[in-house]
Amino acid sequence: MTKQSIFGRISTLIRANVNALIDQAEDPEKMLDQLVRDFTNNIADAEAAIAETIGNLRLLERDHAEDVATAKEWGNKALAASTKADELRTAGNTADADKFDNLAKIALTRQLTAENEAKAAEPQLAAQNEVVEKLKGGLDGMKAKLEDLKAKRSELIARAKTAEAQNKVHDAVKSINVMDPTSDLGRFEDKVRRQEALAAGQAELAASSLDAQFEQLDDLGQLTEVEARLAALKSGGAQAITS
Rank of each mutant, 00 (worst) to 15 (best):
E52L: 14
L35F: 04
L21I: 05
L210M: 04
R153F: 14
Q128T: 12
M1K: 15
E215R: 12
T224F: 10
A199N: 15
E52G: 03
A158V: 06
D140E: 10
K119W: 07
E52V: 14
N19W: 08
E122H: 11
R193N: 07
K150Y: 08
R229A: 03
G221T: 14
A118G: 15
I6Y: 05
L135M: 09
A107C: 11
A78Q: 03
D190H: 08
N41E: 06
E204P: 01
D148K: 04
D38N: 13
V132M: 04
L125Q: 14
G201Y: 07
E196A: 07
K191D: 05
K119D: 09
Q222R: 04
L185E: 01
T242E: 10
K3S: 06
Q4H: 15
A80K: 12
Q239D: 01
S82E: 15
F214T: 15
G8Y: 05
D38V: 07
R58H: 09
V131P: 02
V18P: 02
N93M: 03
A144K: 08
T182Q: 11
A49Y: 04
G221I: 13
V131A: 06
V68H: 03
D98I: 08
G92R: 01
G236W: 06
A65W: 00
A80E: 14
R9F: 08
I50Q: 02
K105N: 04
A97L: 01
R153I: 14
N116K: 08
S82P: 09
A199M: 08
S235K: 01
T12V: 15
A126T: 08
N56Q: 11
E227P: 01
M31A: 15
P123W: 10
A240Y: 07
L198G: 04
E133N: 06
A104L: 01
L103Q: 10
P181D: 01
E61R: 00
A172Q: 12
K3N: 14
D96F: 05
I54A: 11
K150T: 15
A206I: 02
T40H: 05
I6H: 05
D33S: 12
N42R: 11
L13G: 00
T113E: 11
L21W: 09
D148G: 07
N76G: 06
A107S: 11
S208V: 02
V36M: 07
K99E: 08
R110Q: 05
R110A: 09
S5P: 07
Q202E: 14
A114N: 13
L139P: 00
I157H: 05
L149V: 09
